[in-house]
């Protein structure tokens, strides 16, 4: 087997790993009980899932320019998905999306106005 075949196979492996991660986080969206846990679970697909698909595509079609594109794509994806999750969680908390009952500590609820507390 030549080196190029091994690299192609590795690329396919990374792409399927990414697809698997995204499928699992989609299952998580259905199974988890509240907004914050769901936002955490989607983090796996937005981070590792997309990054590993981009890495796989890079391995299957490698060039210097593609390497630069892939690095930029992964960094931009990681930064924006983190900021997006924070914005969603914060907006949810401000709009009284209460955490699920299994949440055993909630120190942020101390900062709520008492009329909003339930």
């Amino acid at each position: 087997m030549e080196l190029i075949d091994i690299v192609q196979a590795l690329g396919l492996l990374f792409i399927f790993l990414g697809i698997g991660t995204i499928i699992v986080s989609a299952i998580g969206l259905f199974k988890l009980p509240d907004l914050y846990l769901r936002a955490s679970a989607v983090g796996t697909s937005a981070g590792l899932g997309v990054a590993s698909i981009v890495l796989g595509a890079l391995l299957m079609d490698f060039s210097g320019l593609n390497l630069l594109k892939a690095v930029i794509a992964i960094i931009a994806q990681l930064l924006t998905s983190a900021v997006g999750s924070m914005a969603i969680a914060r907006a949810g908390y401000l709009n009284n999306a209460l955490p699920a009952e299994i949440t055993h500590i909630d120190e942020l609820s101390l900062t709520r106005r008492s009329s909003d507390r339930s």
Binding site: Y36, S40, G43, M86, A89, Y93, L108
Partner: peptide, 29 residues
Amino acid sequence: SSLITLTPGTLTITISREHGILYVHGMFV
């Protein structure tokens, strides 16, 4: 706060700069 959110299972909901606090939602606490 971005790095905390990027790690699956932990999520920064908000911060309070004047009190020096990160409000972190954790999944396995």
